[in-house]
């Protein structure tokens, strides 16, 4: 009886040992590699997605891009008539100028406002006020773009008509102001980080030499943080160029080269968004919209790369 109990106990211990070893084996051979690989996939996925998207856009655009599309007309004509029954024309000059003008206007408004706010938050506010401001600015960045578009159409539009006597309220000015408000949060948060990264010894040295606070900001902090501030501005530019829904609603979406602030305009992004849904798949029009996608891809890539190189510039400067 006792012997049997002991043997049973030994058996149990053996089974447990075997199970434990199995578990360790399982963890070593299965769980670890799977986890490792899952994490690796996460890391590589960003690269994968970028190339997959680029490949996909290029794949659809290629038949038009390398044959059929007159690239000179594409970049120099303002006639965007992709569905004309007479002669379809694919000229994006007006759309390109629309994108550039609304981005330039937005930056003209957003850069002073954004950098000013960054300086205030970083250098002149403290404690609760600083925290509140930071939270509110982040909140501003979280407002969906369709809501901004709505504000442009329903609030800004009538205000513009009332004060300027413009025939229509959705135009370059409206789109520029809305885009500026959307880019400010990015400029503020990146700009503030750049200012915060300047060592306090710079500030102390400047103040001890008798500089005023404004002099300290203007003569010491700006030069010291100039790369970070430039990166903030470029990220804001990237945001403005890529924005779609808000500009579609606020700019008026009219194909013309703008001559005044009150002219309705149309951007590249909004053109794709508005037209792609109803084109015939595989059609010339459909493919040209993807070529526009490539143009946008190229522009935002250059802007982001510039921002990246500038940021890298800061790092190597600091380590040297």
């Amino acid at each position: 009886m006792l012997e049997r109990l002991i043997r049973l106990w030994q058996l149990r211990a053996a089974v447990l040992r075997w199970l434990r070893r199995g578990w360790h084996l399982f963890v070593d051979r299965v769980v670890e590699p799977v986890m490792e690989c899952a994490i690796r996939i996460c890391g590589w996925s960003a690269i994968l997605f970028i190339f997959a998207i680029l490949f996909f856009v290029l794949w659809i655009a290629a038949p038009m891009l390398f044959g059929g599309l007159d690239l000179v007309e594409f970049f120099t004509s303002e006639n965007w008539r992709p569905t004309s029954a007479v002669r379809p024309q694919f000229g994006i000059l007006a759309l390109l100028l629309g994108t550039l003008s609304v981005t330039a206007l937005a930056m003209l408004l957003a850069v002073p406002l954004g950098l000013g706010a960054a300086v205030y938050v970083s250098e002149f506010s403290s404690g609760k006020l600083k925290e509140t401001l930071k939270v509110l600015i982040e909140l501003l960045a979280a407002i969906p773009s369709v809501v901004w578009g709505f504000v442009g159409m329903m609030v800004m539009g009538p205000i513009i008509i009332h004060f300027t006597g413009a025939p229509v309220g959705v135009n370059l000015l409206n789109g520029g102001v809305i885009l500026a408000l959307m880019s400010v949060p990015i400029i503020v948060s990146v700009g503030e980080d750049a200012l915060k990264a300047v060592p306090d010894s710079y500030r102390e040295a400047a103040l001890s030499l008798g500089a005023g606070r404004w002099e300290m900001v203007y003569r010491v902090l700006f030069p010291a943080a100039k790369n970070g501030l430039l990166a903030a501005v470029l990220l804001g530019v990237g945001r403005a160029i890529g924005e779609t829904m808000a500009v579609l609603m606020a700019t008026g979406h009219a194909i013309q080269i703008p001559h005044s602030l009150l002219d309705p305009i149309r951007t590249l992004t909004a053109t794709i968004a508005a037209e792609l849904g109803e084109t015939v798949e595989g059609d010339a029009h459909y493919r040209v919209l993807f070529v526009i996608g490539l143009v946008l891809f190229a522009v935002t890539f250059v802007v982001n790369l510039a921002a990246d190189l500038v940021v890298k510039g800061i790092r190597s400067e600091r380590t040297s």
């Binding site: 303002e78 006639n79 965007w80 008539r81 004309s84 029954a85 007479v86 007006a94 229509v168 959705v170 579609l248 008026g252 979406h253 009219a254 194909i255 013309q256 309705p264 149309r266 968004a273 508005a274």
Partner: peptide, 10 residues
């Protein structure tokens, strides 16, 4: 064709 410069709504 249409005259360009109209406000095109979606």
């Amino acid at each position: 064709d249409y005259k360009l410069g109209s406000i095109d709504q979606s």
